[in-house]
């Protein structure tokens, strides 16, 4: 269609980005000791899911807006979850002076 374009970004490219984000998110969740860090990992996975939804909606299922709408709700949810989560972290920090989750071991098995 155009002479400038080297390739046409398509579904697989976008989902590829999403998978990379998913992997990064999982890695963050597994390595970080800090509760806020884990929350960041969650945000990465949520973004990965969002990219998936929009990509599938745009390239494959373009007869409706389901995917985009879902992404909209994911953004809303991420905000809501972050708010409550951070309030809880703050509270934990007030009690324990840390948000290092390894410190959360008074309750056991």
């Amino acid at each position: 269609m155009t002479t400038l374009a080297l390739f046409e970004p398509g579904l697989y490219h976008l989902v590829g980005v999403s998978i990379a984000l998913l992997a990064a998110g999982v890695a963050v969740i597994l390595t970080k000791r800090n509760a806020v860090g884990i929350l960041m990992g969650v945000e990465l996975i949520l973004n990965a899911a969002g990219i998936n939804f929009v990509a599938f909606n745009n390239y494959v299922w373009d007869n409706a807006m389901d995917g985009q709408m879902f992404t909209l709700f994911i953004i809303v949810l991420a905000a809501a979850e972050a708010a409550v989560a951070l309030a809880i972290f703050l509270n934990f920090y007030n009690n324990f002076d840390t948000i290092n989750v390894d410190q959360a071991d008074e309750l056991q098995g």
């Binding site: 998913l22 998110g25 969740i29 509760a35 884990i38 929350l39 990992g41 969650v42 996975i45 949520l46 990965a48 899911a49 998936n52 994911i74 949810l77 979850e81 409550v84 989560a85 809880i88 972290f89 509270n91 934990f92 009690n95 324990f96 948000i99 989750v101 959360a104 008074e106 309750l107």
Partner: peptide, 21 residues
């Protein structure tokens, strides 16, 4: 209680993210 809720919110948000994916 705070520790319980911290674990709850972390597990909860991770699993909901996985569910959404």
């Amino acid at each position: 209680a705070t520790e319980g809720s911290l674990k709850y919110v972390l597990f909860g948000s991770v699993s909901s993210a996985v569910m959404i994916y």
